[in-house]
Write a protein that binds this DNA or RNA. Structure first.
Length: 183
DNA sequence: AGGATGATATCC
DNA sequence: GATATCATCCTC
Protein backbone atom coordinates (compact mmCIF):
# COMPACT_ATOMS: atom_id res chain seq x y z
CA UNK A 1 0.00 0.00 0.00
CA UNK A 2 1.68 3.20 -1.14
CA UNK A 3 0.91 5.87 1.42
CA UNK A 4 0.50 9.46 0.20
CA UNK A 5 3.50 11.60 1.18
CA UNK A 6 3.75 14.97 2.90
CA UNK A 7 4.74 16.56 -0.40
CA UNK A 8 1.50 15.31 -1.99
CA UNK A 9 -0.50 17.37 0.50
CA UNK A 10 1.88 20.32 0.20
CA UNK A 11 0.47 21.39 -3.16
CA UNK A 12 -2.17 23.70 -4.56
CA UNK A 13 -5.44 22.83 -2.80
CA UNK A 14 -7.59 22.59 -5.93
CA UNK A 15 -5.01 20.25 -7.45
CA UNK A 16 -4.97 18.05 -4.34
CA UNK A 17 -8.78 17.93 -4.32
CA UNK A 18 -8.78 16.57 -7.87
CA UNK A 19 -5.89 14.19 -7.31
CA UNK A 20 -7.53 12.71 -4.20
CA UNK A 21 -10.28 11.23 -6.35
CA UNK A 22 -9.71 7.48 -6.69
CA UNK A 23 -7.33 7.39 -3.68
CA UNK A 24 -7.97 5.13 -0.68
CA UNK A 25 -8.78 6.20 2.88
CA UNK A 26 -7.71 3.65 5.49
CA UNK A 27 -8.68 3.66 9.16
CA UNK A 28 -7.73 0.75 11.39
CA UNK A 29 -9.33 0.45 14.80
CA UNK A 30 -9.25 -2.59 17.13
CA UNK A 31 -7.43 -4.54 14.44
CA UNK A 32 -10.22 -3.95 11.96
CA UNK A 33 -9.13 -2.14 8.85
CA UNK A 34 -11.75 -0.13 7.00
CA UNK A 35 -11.01 1.07 3.47
CA UNK A 36 -12.96 3.43 1.24
CA UNK A 37 -12.20 4.90 -2.19
CA UNK A 38 -12.61 8.66 -2.46
CA UNK A 39 -15.17 9.64 -5.11
CA UNK A 40 -16.08 13.22 -4.12
CA UNK A 41 -14.11 16.17 -2.64
CA UNK A 42 -14.33 19.92 -2.11
CA UNK A 43 -11.48 22.45 -1.96
CA UNK A 44 -11.40 25.22 0.65
CA UNK A 45 -8.55 27.29 -0.65
CA UNK A 46 -7.63 29.75 2.11
CA UNK A 47 -8.73 32.69 4.29
CA UNK A 48 -9.86 34.72 1.27
CA UNK A 49 -12.34 31.90 0.48
CA UNK A 50 -15.43 33.05 2.36
CA UNK A 51 -16.79 29.49 2.54
CA UNK A 52 -13.69 28.25 4.38
CA UNK A 53 -13.54 28.07 8.18
CA UNK A 54 -10.11 29.71 7.95
CA UNK A 55 -11.73 32.92 6.65
CA UNK A 56 -12.31 33.84 10.32
CA UNK A 57 -8.59 33.77 11.03
CA UNK A 58 -6.61 31.53 13.36
CA UNK A 59 -8.76 30.30 16.28
CA UNK A 60 -8.59 27.20 18.44
CA UNK A 61 -10.88 25.56 15.93
CA UNK A 62 -9.01 26.54 12.77
CA UNK A 63 -5.41 26.23 13.98
CA UNK A 64 -5.23 22.70 12.52
CA UNK A 65 -6.30 24.08 9.14
CA UNK A 66 -3.50 26.65 9.40
CA UNK A 67 -0.97 23.98 10.38
CA UNK A 68 1.25 21.67 8.35
CA UNK A 69 -0.11 19.73 5.35
CA UNK A 70 -1.05 16.07 5.69
CA UNK A 71 -2.94 16.43 8.97
CA UNK A 72 -6.62 15.64 9.61
CA UNK A 73 -9.07 18.47 10.33
CA UNK A 74 -12.21 16.93 11.85
CA UNK A 75 -15.10 18.95 13.30
CA UNK A 76 -18.66 18.42 14.47
CA UNK A 77 -21.41 19.92 12.32
CA UNK A 78 -25.11 20.42 13.15
CA UNK A 79 -24.51 18.77 16.52
CA UNK A 80 -24.64 15.31 14.98
CA UNK A 81 -22.22 14.66 12.17
CA UNK A 82 -18.48 14.90 11.76
CA UNK A 83 -16.71 16.17 8.65
CA UNK A 84 -13.23 15.00 7.63
CA UNK A 85 -10.74 17.24 5.81
CA UNK A 86 -7.07 16.97 4.94
CA UNK A 87 -4.87 20.04 5.41
CA UNK A 88 -3.05 21.22 2.29
CA UNK A 89 -0.29 23.67 1.29
CA UNK A 90 2.50 24.99 3.56
CA UNK A 91 1.96 25.77 7.24
CA UNK A 92 0.09 29.07 7.71
CA UNK A 93 -1.83 28.88 4.44
CA UNK A 94 -5.20 27.91 5.97
CA UNK A 95 -6.49 25.55 3.30
CA UNK A 96 -7.96 22.03 3.26
CA UNK A 97 -9.87 19.51 1.19
CA UNK A 98 -13.19 18.14 2.48
CA UNK A 99 -13.74 14.45 1.72
CA UNK A 100 -17.43 14.26 0.77
CA UNK A 101 -18.05 10.66 -0.31
CA UNK A 102 -16.44 7.22 -0.46
CA UNK A 103 -17.02 4.00 -2.34
CA UNK A 104 -16.83 1.06 0.13
CA UNK A 105 -13.82 -1.22 -0.43
CA UNK A 106 -13.32 -3.20 2.80
CA UNK A 107 -15.19 -3.65 6.11
CA UNK A 108 -17.67 -0.84 5.52
CA UNK A 109 -21.24 -1.71 6.45
CA UNK A 110 -22.91 1.70 6.46
CA UNK A 111 -23.63 4.30 3.83
CA UNK A 112 -20.76 6.59 2.79
CA UNK A 113 -22.38 9.00 0.34
CA UNK A 114 -21.96 12.30 2.18
CA UNK A 115 -19.39 13.83 4.55
CA UNK A 116 -21.38 13.06 7.72
CA UNK A 117 -22.24 9.50 6.73
CA UNK A 118 -18.71 8.70 5.63
CA UNK A 119 -17.29 9.67 9.01
CA UNK A 120 -19.83 7.50 10.80
CA UNK A 121 -19.11 4.52 8.53
CA UNK A 122 -15.32 4.91 8.89
CA UNK A 123 -15.38 5.54 12.64
CA UNK A 124 -13.95 9.06 12.31
CA UNK A 125 -14.66 11.51 15.13
CA UNK A 126 -13.12 14.55 16.81
CA UNK A 127 -10.49 12.39 18.52
CA UNK A 128 -8.79 12.28 15.13
CA UNK A 129 -8.68 16.07 14.77
CA UNK A 130 -5.03 17.03 14.31
CA UNK A 131 -3.98 13.45 13.60
CA UNK A 132 -0.98 13.00 11.29
CA UNK A 133 -2.13 11.24 8.12
CA UNK A 134 1.31 9.70 7.67
CA UNK A 135 0.68 7.46 10.70
CA UNK A 136 0.06 3.72 10.63
CA UNK A 137 -3.66 3.39 11.49
CA UNK A 138 -5.21 6.40 9.75
CA UNK A 139 -3.90 7.44 6.36
CA UNK A 140 -4.53 7.82 2.64
CA UNK A 141 -2.91 5.70 -0.05
CA UNK A 142 -2.57 5.19 -3.75
CA UNK A 143 -5.00 2.62 -5.14
CA UNK A 144 -3.32 -0.63 -6.23
CA UNK A 145 -5.62 -0.96 -9.18
CA UNK A 146 -5.23 1.24 -12.19
CA UNK A 147 -8.42 3.12 -12.89
CA UNK A 148 -9.38 5.88 -15.26
CA UNK A 149 -12.38 8.13 -14.84
CA UNK A 150 -13.76 11.49 -15.81
CA UNK A 151 -13.72 14.27 -13.21
CA UNK A 152 -16.75 16.57 -13.00
CA UNK A 153 -16.57 19.95 -11.22
CA UNK A 154 -19.49 21.85 -9.69
CA UNK A 155 -20.40 24.43 -7.07
CA UNK A 156 -19.79 23.41 -3.48
CA UNK A 157 -22.68 22.16 -1.34
CA UNK A 158 -24.14 24.06 1.62
CA UNK A 159 -22.10 27.27 1.25
CA UNK A 160 -24.73 29.68 -0.10
CA UNK A 161 -23.67 32.24 2.55
CA UNK A 162 -20.21 32.66 0.94
CA UNK A 163 -21.21 35.34 -1.59
CA UNK A 164 -19.21 35.10 -4.83
CA UNK A 165 -17.27 32.12 -3.44
CA UNK A 166 -20.49 30.09 -3.44
CA UNK A 167 -20.31 30.18 -7.24
CA UNK A 168 -16.79 28.83 -7.71
CA UNK A 169 -16.39 25.33 -9.06
CA UNK A 170 -14.42 23.76 -6.23
CA UNK A 171 -16.36 20.50 -5.83
CA UNK A 172 -15.03 17.53 -7.74
CA UNK A 173 -16.43 14.05 -8.20
CA UNK A 174 -16.03 10.95 -10.33
CA UNK A 175 -18.49 11.00 -13.19
CA UNK A 176 -21.32 8.44 -12.98
CA UNK A 177 -20.08 6.97 -9.69
CA UNK A 178 -23.12 5.79 -7.67
CA UNK A 179 -21.54 6.71 -4.32
CA UNK A 180 -21.35 10.46 -5.01
CA UNK A 181 -23.63 12.30 -2.54
CA UNK A 182 -27.09 13.29 -3.74
CA UNK A 183 -27.56 16.84 -2.46
C1' DA B 1 -40.54 21.85 5.20
C1' DG B 2 -38.65 21.04 9.58
C1' DG B 3 -36.11 18.83 13.40
C1' DA B 4 -32.10 16.84 15.82
C1' DT B 5 -28.24 18.60 18.69
C1' DG B 6 -23.67 20.79 20.21
C1' DA B 7 -19.51 23.46 19.27
C1' DT B 8 -18.12 27.93 18.01
C1' DA B 9 -17.94 32.76 16.76
C1' DT B 10 -19.64 36.99 17.90
C1' DC B 11 -22.09 39.81 20.18
C1' DC B 12 -23.18 42.18 24.94
C1' DG C 1 -22.85 34.58 29.51
C1' DA C 2 -26.45 34.56 25.69
C1' DT C 3 -27.58 33.50 21.05
C1' DA C 4 -27.35 32.88 16.05
C1' DT C 5 -25.26 30.00 12.91
C1' DC C 6 -23.79 25.90 10.78
C1' DA C 7 -18.87 22.41 4.80
C1' DT C 8 -25.68 17.36 7.33
C1' DC C 9 -29.04 13.96 7.02
C1' DC C 10 -33.53 11.91 7.98
C1' DT C 11 -38.55 11.89 8.27
C1' DC C 12 -42.89 13.67 7.19
Amino acid sequence: MRKLTRSFYNQNTTLVAQQLLGKLLIHEVNGIRRIGRIVETEAYVGPHDLAAHSSRGITSRTQIMYGSPGYAYVYLIYGIYHCFNVVTEPEGHGSAVLIRALEPVLNIDQRTQGPGLLCRAMGIDKQLNGHDLLGSTFYLAESEKESTFDIVSSKRIGVAYAKEWAESLLRFYIKDNPYVSKR
